[in-house]
Write a protein that binds this DNA or RNA. Structure first.
Lengths: 186, 186
DNA sequence: GTCTATAATAGGATAGAC
DNA sequence: GTCTATCCTATTATAGAC
């Protein structure tokens, strides 16, 4: 066989798809292998340290995706409301309108959470900072802006959890829709 | 050895402790055995169908606990604000002031979620109904009351997730503290 | 009811051919 | 780079003594 069918980035995207759905413990090498179309040994060729290294690669991939699609609109030069709407549009897409799990939430379950805790913490932190910026621009004091940004993440993560548990993705979509205005209210 | 050291209820409580922390896939029989002080075979004596049956027992136990500690205050004859404060006080205790994971959230990760989905859905549904009641008593229209109850669960679950991921339990405690007044605002 | 012992299987990881 | 074959360990589950 010639060149690989999938680029490394596509491979990592497929690993992420399995891991966000199954969690660390539930994501078996068999499933990871099937999802990527690579045999177990091929996976070990790309990730010599095994599953842990795959998760690190997936977290790197998530960080890049977040920066490009979620943080970037928040840091544009558009008005605050539009920046926040840019974020919610990206989130709606990334979470399949409430049907796909959050990788950070899935990795927060089990022993894996201990290992990747610093990384999860850093990603959430950066996200809070990024949301705070348009609120600051809108004249909201620093402390209030941070508290609202934290609340935004609670609502996003909570809405996703509830939407998936209830089988009602609309709960997530509706929460995203109302979020920008709620964050900017006086 | 004579009578068992732990009552069945205590055994189930310890099973819950492991499962909420590790999730379905991460909760091995070895850990379950260690946490309960029962050998593997003793666990199979109580739960012949293995881990699945243990989870069902844990969900039954959670349902009973929720009814007794969370739903009951919501249905008391106290004023709405006090009812909601009764719930948040129970939640603060149950979730160790933001340090213990939510069983429903942990079971929502992985293939297990498919199996227990109806049960998770039912528990969240009952919770939403229970929170709606004091809001209705306070004169909030039915539709608004349900939407706010759903939002309450998003905030509770999201705050717990974020508090644990960030290593800042205070995020959870603060969210609980502000919740009753926010749910009743005009 | 609890234990030891033991299947039987799935999981993560490696070796080496091609 | 990818494959087949294999190893080792952990895991679920059962059998049977006490």
């Amino acid at each position: 066989m010639p060149a690989p069918l999938l680029s490394l980035d596509e491979v990592i995207a497929r690993l992420m798809s399995v891991i966000r759905r199954e969690g660390y413990d539930g994501a078996s090498l068999a499933e990871l292998s099937k999802a990527t179309g690579l045999g177990r040994s091929s996976l070990y060729h790309y990730f010599p340290d095994g599953k842990d290294q795959m998760v690190v690669a997936v977290l790197d991939h998530l960080e890049a995706t977040m920066k490009a699609n979620v943080f970037a609109p928040l840091r544009s030069d558009a008005p605050p409301l539009e920046r926040l709407q840019g974020m919610t549009a990206a989130l709606d897409k990334f979470y399949g309108s409430g049907q796909e799990a959050c990788l950070l939430a899935s990795l927060g379950v089990g022993d894996a959470s201990k290992q990747f805790h610093p990384r999860l913490r850093q990603l959430f932190s950066a996200w809070i900072v990024a949301i705070s910026e348009p609120l600051r621009v809108a004249g909201i004091p620093r402390g209030t802006a941070q508290a609202r940004a934290e609340k935004a993440l609670m609502l996003i993560e909570g809405a996703l959890l509830l939407a998936r548990a209830m089988g009602e993705p609309a709960l997530f979509v509706r929460t995203l829709r109302d979020l920008p205005a709620e964050l900017l209210r006086r």
